[in-house]
Design a protein around this nucleic acid. Structure first.
Lengths: 364, 364
DNA sequence: ATGAAAGCGCTAACAC
DNA sequence: GTGTTAGCGCTTTCAT
């Protein structure tokens, strides 16, 4: 039940008003309201009665002014429509909520300037910490400066070389290796990989010398590709640059890439797609080209999307514990927010292979 | 290039510091920095030089204190993992970003107390406005009070009876009718509908008297169901309560519901699912029961999910312009934030039917 | 165009 | 346990 009359704008009544009505000092009222210091039971009652009569609502911005903490963390995601971020966000908000933090959300849309603007805005709003999925081509300048200044930052999914910040993600190389090994074990030798990495990484990904991959190592794709090459090498299967297809980020790109792969003189008998959007694209290509999966071409994807077991064939995937990833990022951040002194850590969780029906031995 | 030395915490330098270094008054420095009032070109230069030398960063919280505006809008979504909200969020953040507003995000997880807490937190943080997808069972008390106090609020997707707030969504009755008509036109007479509405709506949805639907009209499901019944009535097809299946919100619920429907003495020859998760569940059930779609049972879903055209069969859906819905909500809110005096409006966009291959004439 | 000074609503010393 | 007071960093009269 609300005792106050309607039409009174929010924030019209202050602690001073409450104090006056309760017949106590502002300090006492503030203590009672803010639940700190010591207040007698009687004062507490008086104050809370006055507060509810006046419809008092604490003003966090005034409080932040003094305490220099906003209990807000900024979250910058690369692409808000990507299911990965969505689930991660779920983990982040749930955990953060439990610790009493609110989330200021920004979508960089993988654009550098939007990321920078978001970063700027968050600093000006004095967020207590940041969880960031740096855009593909990220300017480490500002982020790095903020970290130096002591702002707690945790990087999600992607890492940035030389940035002294915690990061949370899966063991990408291992995941790439497991997926490839799985295919190798079933007899595949012509295994293609479709990645969504930016075109700027094409050369490194195609290079004969695996050490070139170092330049793209910060990207999840580069690391997964490196796992793929490790697996091939271990099995004595030669690396064929043409089998690495650097598609764009959209599904259509992956569809085209798959079609191109299928038209190669020696087309692959199996394909690994590095994210769920790409998997969808490959599936679409199979359909268009009339290729039966897994009979004619096997497929293994990344990320266990909601549709993965409903499509036909149900897709075998490397499943990332996405919600957990978000949770861990939030937890790590909260530790720092609590003032714990921690070494910079790269928190890695394992992706797990979920066997379904999109992989079979190669034809013939 | 950053001129300041590292290690200086954010917010350590204030306008006063800048003013001192620039040799001007705080007022002048503030005017130059905040880009208001009038400042001579010379002062402006002096100030901005001093500012960058000191690495000055405006403090929005102090500014908000004075201006009583935070340039922040709160967004409360019902289920952050639902693709619908995700896309809507994309529309919201993009538009809001363009207008210079930041987003404070909260996930109510369809729980009333979390919604209330989020609302409370946002008020205390003095957001300038709110975009809310009220939880299924929403307590209109607080929201209603806030609206009365003049806080701009726009409701997304769902509406709340008796709440004087703008709302944005699709024409649900029309959409329900179109989907049903489409099936009717192809000869179906036994058409089932699977909704995710809470169990509390089961009775009203099953009632013989369509007027009962009024009680669930605020829910999107109720209104869509009402369109379904309109269509049946217009075609002279009797309404069969058993054909309305009130599933939970999870995919498994829909799967079970579909299985039950299929086991009816006179099973439906077509099914309408009211959201994409339910569609996935129905598909799963078809697979489990070995039912061929559309040959044995047709299916028409709501929401054009990314996988809709890749599954087999590709699903015919009522596509909601989700991103646009988010954009319109944001735009409407900004208008109010700008002080425009507007009547309360229910902004309705149309859903469109996307024909694919999950609908065929009934068997036999 | 500029400056001095008065707060915004709250918390944090510091007395009592 | 309570009150007084001094700010937090900024904007905003109101003079000049």
């Amino acid at each position: 039940m609300t005792t106050r009359s309607p039409g009174i704008p929010i924030g019209d009544t202050t602690v001073a008003d409450v104090a006056r009505l309760a017949g106590v000092s502002v300090a006492t009222a503030a203590r009672a309201l803010g639940n700190y210091g010591s207040v007698s039971a009687r004062s507490r009652e008086l104050v809370s009665a006055a507060a509810s009569e006046l419809g008092y609502r604490p003003n966090m911005v005034a409080r932040s002014m003094i305490t220099k903490t906003t209990r807000t963390v900024g979250v910058i995601v690369g692409d808000i429509e990507n299911h990965f971020f969505l689930s991660a966000l779920r983990g982040i908000t749930d955990r953060l909520d439990a610790f009493g933090y609110d989330v200021l959300l920004a979508n960089s849309a993988e654009e550098l300037d939007r990321e920078q603007r978001a970063l700027q805005a968050m600093v000006e709003r004095r967020v207590d910490g940041l969880i960031v999925t740096p855009a593909q081509v990220s300017d480490r300048e500002l982020l790095s400066e903020l970290i130096h200044q002591g702002l707690p930052v945790v990087l999600l999914d992607r890492r940035i070389r030389g940035l002294r910040a915690d990061s949370v993600g899966i063991r990408n190389r291992e995941a790439g290796r497991i997926a490839t090994d799985y295919l190798l074990d079933r007899g595949h030798r012509r295994i293609a990989l479709i990645t969504g990495a930016g075109a700027e990484h094409r050369e490194a990904l195609h290079a004969e010398d695996p050490r070139e991959l170092k330049t793209v190592r910060a990207s999840t794709s580069g690391t997964r590709a490196s796992g793929y090459r490790q697996a091939l090498a271990a099995a004595g299967v030669p690396f064929i640059p043409d089998y690495i297809s650097v598609a764009g980020f959209r599904r259509e790109d992956a569809c085209l890439a798959t079609l191109a792969l299928l038209n190669l003189p020696a087309p692959p008998t199996a394909i690994v797609t590095l994210d769920s959007g790409l998997t969808l694209g490959a599936l679409q290509a199979f359909r268009q080209a009339g290729i039966r999966c897994p009979e004619e071409c096997s497929l293994i994807g990344f990320d266990d999307a909601e549709w993965a077991e409903v499509v036909s064939p149900p897709i075998t995937v490397m499943s990332q514990p996405v919600v957990q990833l978000g949770e861990r990022a939030a937890e790590r951040l909260v530790q720092r927010l609590n003032g714990e002194v921690l070494d910079v850590a790269a928190i890695r969780l394992s992706a797990t292979l979920i066997e379904r029906s999109s992989v079979a031995p190669p034809p013939g």
